[in-house]
Each structure stands twice: as C-alpha cells, then as structure tokens.
Nucleic acid binder design. Structure first.
Lengths: 318, 318
DNA sequence: CACATCGATTGTCCATGACAAATAGCACAG
DNA sequence: CTGTGCTATTTGTCATGGACAATCGATGTG
C-alpha cells in the first residue's frame, strides 16, 4: 500500500536495524555483509544521517531467506543474483514436505500461534497438555520436529522474532528436562550413551530430545553439555563405561568442520564405542560417513529408537 | 623454565589463538582489540606467517583480568597501562571476601575441582548429593553463589575453560529445573512472579535460582525466558495477574542501559506491580534506583526470601 | 571411477580514519 | 557541602578498500 518510491522519514531511518543488529539477528557477520554489498550489490542498505548502514525490512527478509538456503548447501553467488521469486522457488524445493498427519499439523499450528501471539502462559500449559495427551515418544518424534520446523519457517517469514523463539525453546527444554526426571528408574540401564556437540556448536535442543527418548527406553545418558573438545569426549568414554557417543550437528555448522570432526572423533574413539551423528549437519554428509566403521547417521529423530533396538540386538563383542 | 627470549617456533604460533578466538573466548570485540593495540600499546600479539594476530597465553590471561575488572566498573585506560601486579591488587580490592563458612568453602572447592578435572559424571552426582544433603535453600543461597564465584575466578586464572564452565552451568540448570518440578504443588500460590531479563542480557542462571526459591515458598513463577522487550513484559503482566516482576541484570550489562531499562520498566508497569531487580548489574545502581516507587533491589540471592516475606506481610492494596 | 590440478568463489583479516555515546571533571547555584 | 549543568576526554563501533587463504567445482589423467 505504501509508495515504494517515497523516501522514509529520518525518524523511520533510526528505527531500522544497524549492521550489528543484522549480524546478531540473522547471523551473518558484519564483514560478510559489507563484502557482499561491495561484490554482489546486495544488500545495499540505506544510510542514516551518520553515514551508517540501515537495513530495510525487505532486505532483512531476503537475507534470512539467503541464510537459510545457504545452510542447506547453496552457494551465495547464485542466491545473491536471484530474484525473490527464484529464492522462494528454491526454498520450496529444499524445504521438507508438509506433514502427512493432519492431527499433528493442527497441534503444531496451535502451538505456533500461541508462541507468535506471545501467550506464553497458555503456551506452557498447552505444551504440557500435549505431552501428557500424546505421550513422550509421539511428542518428541512427531510434534516437536514439526513445531521447530514451523518456527524456523516463521522466523524466515518474519512472523516470529528471536525473543519468541527463545521462550519456546526454554519452555520445551524445561518440559523435556522435567519429563526425563520424572521417568521411573529401572535397574536395567544399557547402553550408556554420551551426548554432546562438537566445539563451537551451540544448538542443544536436539540432544535433549534424544536424551529423553533414550532415557524413556532405559538407557543411561551422560549429557556433557555443548562444545566439548574431542579429547575430552574420548577421555569421558574411558572412565564412563560409555557404549555409544551421540553427536549433534546443526545445519549452520560449517560442513567441512563437521565432516572432519566426525572422522577424527571416530579415529580417536575405541572400536567398541559406537558413534551416532545426528542433526541436519550430519545428514548432509551421510554418504561420506557411511564408510566409517561402527558409525551411524541419525537422519531423523525417530530413527533413534530403531538404532537403539539394533544396538541391543547385536551388541559389540567386548 | 623456558627461556622467555626464545622465539616460539612457527608450529607453536599456529596453535595460538587468533583474534576471532579471543573475541569469542574473552568476549572483547575484534574492533576493540585492534583499537586498544593501536592506542594503548596493549595487547601487541605475535604475527603468524600470514601477518595475522596470534595472542600469547600471557596476553589472554591479562585480557581476562582486564575484562573482569572492567565489568566491575574500572576504566580501560587505567587498566591498560597498569602492570600485572597492579591489576592483581585491583582485583583483590574489588573481589568479594572469602566465604565465612568453612564447610561451604570445602564443598565449593570439591565441586570446583571436579569441574576443573572434567570428572563430569562425578560432578553431577556430587551436585545432586550436595543438594539433597544441604537442602534447596542452603544449596541456592550458600553453595551456588560460592561455586559460581569460584568458577569466575578460575576462568580468570585460566584454571578452567569455557567448556567446563558450560558443563557446570548445564548441570546446575538441570538440577534446579528438576528440583522445581519435584516440589509439591500447593493450593496457595501467591504472589505470582514474572521472571526475565532485559533485552540483550543472556545470563539466566540467577533467574532460575530465584525461581526455585520462590516456588519452594509456594509462589507462582512465570519465567519468560531471556531478553524480553519491555512492552512484552508489560503485556504479560496484564493477562497474567502478575504481582511482582523480577529482572536479572549481570555485571557485563552496560550500566547505562541497565539503569535506563529499569527506570522505563518501572514507568510502564502498573503501580500495583512490584519490581525486583537483582544481579551484579542491579546492585551497582542500588542508590539511583532507591527512589523509584515500589521497587526493590535484590543485593544477594538470599534477600529473595526476605523480600517475599515482606511482600506477604504488606501486600499492596488492589 | 578415483584422484590430482587449477581457476573461481568467498569469508575473514588488516590498517587507518572518523565519530557518537558514555564518562569524568569542573564550575556554579542553592 | 550537595546537586546540577556544561565541556573535555575517553572509548567502542563503523566505514573503506585491499589482500589472502580456505573452499568449491570443474577439468584432466591414471
């Protein structure tokens, strides 16, 4: 409705995000933003009275899209020159298909809307209720992936901000931790699984989901927190009687480092310890990792249980 | 033992941290590091074969000290020109006094040593055991502050890395969340307290401690996660029947913004809602905030319970 | 088909200059 | 002496533009 040719008032300019804001919110470094502008001519932000970059909502939107597509492996040069329509098309082709189960879709939509409209109290109780009604397995395997994907999409389309995403993540974490704690303790608790992420990897929700699933199946979990140096992981295996090491790698993790990290880790671990790699960053390298001995790629959170059964059916000779 | 005049081999050089590493580990921006070097002549790092900055262990150590002292309000210009001895002296004068209770000190030392030596499994069970033995109140009010301070000191002296600190934080969070969940539910649950931090503030452990204390005293808590925009806090009060808003402000939070944030928030909140500000960043401004109506500064986590009693003794007329 | 080679791509680093926000120091009124 | 307002200094971030190493992708060879 607004005239795209009209220059914004200077008041408007000052409310627009600076380069530091974009770095934080979209996750692209200041250096990269400046060099893209120089090389590809996008994004060319407005300038405030002080000569500093001010990015428009449209540019941010497109940057988010680009960021997302780069995470899924596309090269910047292609993306930078593409029109918004082409970007959308790319997104459609790489995005996961709509969820098959309409009941799940409905629940996901409800939960997402509560996040978006910041009805956090209602959100919390809805989450608890959903967990109770659907059961832990279904909640983790069906609802949560759908919800997280929906949130990712919502972020992309600027329907939801980082603040809302943060609250949702917090709520989910709390819920899962409570659920884990509330699980009945059993005498049998094999295998014992060490859970962590590689250095410089900060996304921990996936690990928590795996932990909850495993604990519910009476495995013993040892969550080491995030960003564990490789030697520490190996050391932990030694004194911890660890059977399996599970690593979470997000899409944003540099692919090269991911591959390298998993291969080195496999080299350092004893042969008797099985290595599981999960998360979008691991799936990308599924082919390359297939040849590693005693290593499994968890393509989807739901495969966790299958892998667990498989391990139990044929445990390694010790 | 090693000759301080000997130049390091180029192999050694490549293992030293780059400017990006220092930015991440110490928390000082690349721009700031370069401008300090230019202006104050510290730190002047080595250069690798590629001409890029490589910081020595000593420099990092001193930078951590400087960072810490700056957090407690000292000016960079003074710190940059001071000798290491002078820095240490400054630290001694601003650091909190040793803990009075030797039993607590002993426990803290034990837990810290487990963190430092990366015996994470033992750490976890020691934490649970300590909580069970000491009780929730004593654990949160005595043990945790001592332990967190010890870890801060340990980081400063490079006895402990960010990875270890991360694991400890994770463990404490999990423990507190479990403890909160395990608390018996009571029918009486007043007041209801909204907990969060200001935008761009990321330290959430203090909030969790407050939440646990309050829940244990049958208050109702609504943790909003971190970095909540002020309008959202106000909105949440409206539909949440909130009696008290509790804000956590860490030492690293820019003092100016902290003061401004609390004052604006007080202005936006209804008079019937009490405002609590806690954390090192709030204590700094205790004087300035004293004049605000219906606002309390939580100087130490232990004051939480006293404030709660006080609120209950004289609830505001509604 | 596996593997080495060679441009093209791409993010980070460097140096330096500039400036606005934050802070300290100081003068002055009550 | 206390509070208040004004300069002067301090200090972190931003801008520009050049350079380069790591990575990618394609092409050629055993």
């Amino acid at each position: 409705m607004s005239n795209p040719l009209a220059k914004p008032h200077s008041d408007d300019l000052l409310t627009l995000p600076t380069i530091a804001d974009v770095e934080r919110d979209v996750g692209i470094s200041k250096d990269a933003l400046r060099v893209w502008e120089r090389r590809y001519g996008f994004p060319v932000p407005l300038r405030d009275n002080n000569g500093e970059r001010r990015y428009t909502t449209d540019q941010i939107q497109r940057l988010r899209l680009i960021r997302r597509l780069m995470d899924s492996g596309l090269r910047p040069s292609k993306l930078m020159l593409a029109t918004p329509e082409e970007l959308e098309a790319q997104l459609g082709s790489c995005s996961a298909p709509e969820h098959a189960d309409p009941a799940v879709a409905l629940i996901v939509t409800e939960l997402f809307d509560l996040s978006r409209s910041r009805q956090f109290v209602a959100l919390r109780s809805a989450l608890s209720q959903t967990l109770a009604r659907q059961g832990l397995h279904r909640f983790i395997i069906e609802i949560m992936p759908g919800l997280l994907e929906r949130v990712g999409d919502g972020w992309l389309r600027a329907e939801i901000g980082i603040a809302e995403e943060h609250v949702l993540t917090e709520a989910l974490q709390g819920l899962l931790r409570s659920a884990i704690y509330a699980l009945p303790q059993h005498a049998v608790h094999h295998p014992s699984v060490l859970l962590t992420s590689l250095p410089e990897e900060d996304h921990g929700l996936g690990l928590l989901m795996v932990e909850a699933l495993l604990e519910s199946e009476h495995a013993t979990c040892l969550p080491l927190g995030l960003r564990t140096p490789l030697p520490d992981i190996v050391a932990a295996c030694a004194w911890g009687q660890i059977d399996i090491v599970a690593i979470s790698i997000s899409a944003a993790y540099p692919p090269r480092r991911a591959l390298q990290g998993v291969v080195s880790l496999r080299g350092l671990l004893p042969d008797t310890v099985q290595l599981w790699a999960g998360g979008a960053g691991a799936v990308t390298h599924a082919e390359a990792l297939r040849t590693l001995p005693n290593t499994r790629i968890i393509r989807h959170i739901r495969d966790t249980l299958a892998e667990l059964s498989q391990w139990r059916d044929s445990p390694p000779a010790t």
